[in-house]
């Protein structure tokens, strides 16, 4: 994204993840796995073993993509982030169970997730909402899809190889939250504007 964006080619060390701070811009490469509402409920309630090797060190992406099948191959047509707060009841548990490097989404998450990021050295990355075509173009390969028949295309686990996927760290493993800071600053300005 920026000239001085940090390259994050997954998997990376916990030390590297812990060094990231809110406001850092990153270009993510490596394995990203989509998961939204049904998938999160499933991960927490069933704790399926087959997901462990897929998710370890990878990043979960809150996204319900538009996919197209061309012969044997799947192609990503549009894949921007969806609102993360719906996964707040599940996310901390998912981070602990599957030891993911982090989560990509939009809008930020709550205190429970923030505490899990701190405990397990993970990071919340914010993607640019609405940039469905550009973010789809960052996908180099659709490696596999899990639970497609059970959950349908938008809710399935799409295992994607991405490169140069632009995102901003908005919640870090030191407990920082850019969302909290911007809200506080705009609250002050609102008070002034309301008079």
């Amino acid at each position: 994204m920026a000239k001085d964006a940090i390259r994050l080619d997954l998997p990376v060390s916990e030390e590297m993840l812990r060094s990231l701070r809110i406001g850092d811009e990153v270009l993510i490469g490596g394995t990203v796995v989509t998961a939204r509402d049904v998938a999160h409920k499933f991960m927490v309630e069933k704790k399926p073993e087959f997901l462990r090797p897929v998710l370890r060190g990878a990043v979960i992406y809150h996204c319900g993509p538009i996919m197209k099948r061309a012969g044997e191959e799947w192609k990503v047509i549009a894949a921007g982030p969806t609102t993360s707060s719906r996964e707040e009841p599940y996310q901390a548990d998912v981070i602990e169970t599957y030891r993911v490097a982090g989560v990509i989404g939009k809008g930020g998450m709550g205190e429970k997730t923030s505490a899990a990021l701190k405990q397990f050295g993970a990071v919340y990355f914010h993607a640019v909402g609405g940039a469905g075509t550009l973010l789809a173009a960052c996908v180099r390969r659709v490696r596999e899809v899990l639970m497609l028949d059970e959950f349908g295309a938008p809710e399935a686990f799409w295992v994607l190889d991405v490169a140069d996927f632009p995102a901003v760290v908005t919640m870090d493993s030191a407990g920082g939250s850019l969302h909290r800071e911007v809200l506080k600053a705009s609250e002050e300005r609102l008070k002034g504007l309301l008079g």
Partner: peptide, 15 residues
């Protein structure tokens, strides 16, 4: 993203 969606005829946003 706006430029890419127009040139490729793909949805600007997946929603």
């Amino acid at each position: 993203n706006v430029e890419l969606a127009r040139s490729g005829g793909t949805p600007i946003c997946q929603d």
